[in-house]
């Protein structure tokens, strides 16, 4: 189990009902972590979301390390 700090933006924040949280997870990659949360919060499909680990956007198969800060960012269009 690794402790990961997760932050949610826009629609993900609405769905999760919180801005962020610390999660104990066995997920090895950003994508696996999203899949875990997708079920818990009924998040939208992964295609329309970007993930950043430690303030850098990365691919979904990027590995997670304990203590990482993960941000899930969907696009917004309001103006």
């Amino acid at each position: 189990m690794a402790k990961i700090r997760v932050q949610y933006f826009a629609i993900l924040r609405e769905r999760a009902g919180r801005a962020g949280e610390e999660i104990d997870t066995v997920a090895a990659t950003a994508g696996a972590l999203y899949a875990e949360l997708e079920g818990r919060y009924s998040f939208p499909a992964l295609r329309s979301v970007k993930v950043a680990i430690n303030d850098e956007f990365c691919p979904w198969d990027a590995p997670l390390s304990p203590g990482d800060s993960v941000v899930f960012i969907p696009p917004v269009a309001g103006g």
Partner: peptide
């Protein structure tokens, strides 16, 4: 490069539907 494709319709509400704090824009 950032968002290769748009989200499915209806997923992201516009200001009219989702609301926006006036000072934010």
């Amino acid at each position: 490069c950032l968002f290769p494709e748009p989200p499915p319709p209806g997923l992201v509400p516009a200001c009219a539907d989702g609301g926006v704090l006036g000072v934010l824009p």
